[in-house]
Design a protein around this nucleic acid. Structure first.
Lengths: 149, 149
DNA sequence: GTGAGTGCAAACGATTTGCACGGTG
DNA sequence: CACCGTGCAAATCGTTTGCACTCAC
């Protein structure tokens, strides 16, 4: 299943993709997706719900979870695990990785300069690799900013 | 004490490392570590607690969490995020990555053939990268059924 | 002896579930 | 019209917290 890595699919794209997976096109799904795309970056289900609420009629948390799960299944958004009890979502754009600062808890993007996926895929003959999630941990430039003189 | 970075640390190593971090050497910590090492692979806090219980006097969950956190801080065990509400731990051995099968939920090890960490480190000038966690997702060879496709 | 670590009980919070209603196809 | 998806309420479950006791150092 090849997924065209569009940076920001339009509402029509969302609708088309949902349909192609046998999923229905509904308000919450479009709203959640567009909100996530507008916010950009990595957002929690709660952040999405808050943004949606501040943007109009709002949406119950359950529906946000439902929509996010459906969108994730459809391959339109990607889930990032940044620890237990913390699921973050982002629009499934170009490939990149993540850096989690141990000190300030910031989650930074790291450009994917190398086809990590292809490299590692060679190690598992027979497996179908659909995505690669890389999480680096350490101290971010800002927190390290105070040079250990 | 010489610490072999590629071998599983002995109880003495555990004690030494804990001490070197200013942490005390206690029963729960040694028990949890040795149990995790004996079980091998990736284990949840609950699995460790169960194994410890079946192996003698047992240990309350809180203590298992305490010990795992202390061991993780000491760098003796590594935490792997395999989804929200699921923290897995493993003895901090040689560097390797993980593959999570979408179908059977199996978590497989992937040999670290390439210095992913070094490669990506170049993308974040000023950051101190302490660890790299790679989680590949897809369908494992067994679930893919036909290895030759 | 002192303070870190333990472990009991209770809180916590993100996520999930069951089910009746409403909208999509 | 049939069924998927919504959304309310409540449950669930891994994990965290507060605090008095105990043990390592």
């Amino acid at each position: 299943m090849t997924v065209d890595p569009l940076a920001h699919p339009t509402s029509d794209d969302v609708a088309a993709r949902l349909r192609s997976r046998g999923l229905r096109v509904t308000g919450p799904r479009l709203t959640v997706y567009r909100t996530l795309a507008r916010l950009g970056g990595h957002r929690s289900a709660d952040q999405v719900a808050a943004a949606v609420a501040g943007d109009g009629p709002g949406l119950p948390r359950t529906s946000v979870y439902n929509a996010l799960k459906a969108l994730a299944d459809a391959g339109l958004v990607a889930a990032v695990d940044a620890g237990p009890g913390t699921a973050l979502y982002e629009v499934h754009g170009h490939s990149h990785h993540h850096f989690l600062c141990r000190r300030c808890e910031a989650l930074l993007d790291v450009p994917a300069a190398t086809p990590v996926q292809d490299l590692l895929g060679l190690q598992l003959p027979g497996a179908v690799i659909e995505s690669a999630q890389v999480v680096l941990r350490g101290v971010c430039p800002q927190c390290a900013g105070t040079p250990a003189s």
